[in-house]
Amino acid sequence: MTDAPDPWSDFVRELGMRIFRARSEQHLSQEQVAHAAGLATFTYRKLEKGESNPGTSANPRLRTIVAVSEVLGVPLPDLIPTPPKGLPPER
């Protein structure tokens, strides 16, 4: 185990912030977006936090991100951050 920063963690945190901003701009609740996207509110909240469990980076399904993008009316490329160089594969 290393103390090096996890680039995946930063990536999913930024994804969550972009989703949060898009939702806030439309004055929607987490529950409204989750319901419209076919997600549990708990799952959606974790997506905005960028964590699946405390201290564990989220690894959302593409289907989930696409559904949230459609509900928010935000093009998918606007939600997805630029991946960091040398992103290690998820284990």
Rank of each mutant, 00 (worst) to 15 (best):
L87G: 04
L76A: 06
S24G: 02
T2G: 09
G50T: 10
T2Y: 02
Q30E: 14
A58K: 00
E51T: 09
E51G: 07
D3Y: 09
K49R: 15
V68G: 01
K46G: 12
D10C: 04
R18K: 13
V74Y: 01
A36W: 00
Y44R: 03
D10M: 10
A67V: 04
P54A: 12
D3M: 09
T2I: 06
R23L: 04
V74H: 01
R18G: 07
P5N: 06
E14W: 02
W8H: 14
L62H: 04
E25G: 13
A4D: 14
S24K: 14
Q30L: 04
V74D: 06
A36N: 09
N59Q: 10
L72K: 07
A34Q: 06
S24V: 11
T43N: 10
T41H: 11
F11Y: 15
P89W: 04
E70F: 00
T43F: 00
L76N: 05
R45N: 13
P81K: 09
S9K: 12
L39T: 05
I19C: 05
R61M: 08
L47Y: 02
E51M: 01
A22Q: 08
A37T: 05
Q26F: 00
S29V: 08
W8C: 05
V74I: 15
R18S: 11
M17F: 11
A37H: 01
L47P: 06
S69F: 07
V71W: 01
P81M: 10
N53D: 14
L76Y: 04
L87R: 11
L72W: 08
V12R: 03
A40I: 00
L28T: 05
R45T: 14
S52P: 00
R23W: 02
Q26R: 15
Q32F: 02
P60T: 07
S29F: 03
I19A: 06
V74M: 12
L76R: 02
P7I: 06
E51H: 01
A40D: 15
S57F: 10
F11N: 03
D6C: 08
T41V: 14
A58P: 04
A34V: 06
V68D: 01
E25Q: 14
Q26W: 00
D78G: 01
N53F: 14
R61Q: 15
G38P: 02
G16Q: 08
L39E: 05
L47N: 05
E25W: 01
V68S: 02
E31D: 13
P83C: 10
V71N: 05
A40P: 00
P5A: 13
T41P: 00
T82F: 01
A58F: 02
S52R: 12
A40V: 07
E51L: 03
A34K: 07
V12Y: 03
L72P: 02
P89Y: 04
S29K: 07
T2M: 01
E31C: 00
P54I: 11
T82S: 13
A67K: 02
K85G: 12
R23A: 05
P89L: 12
P83R: 07
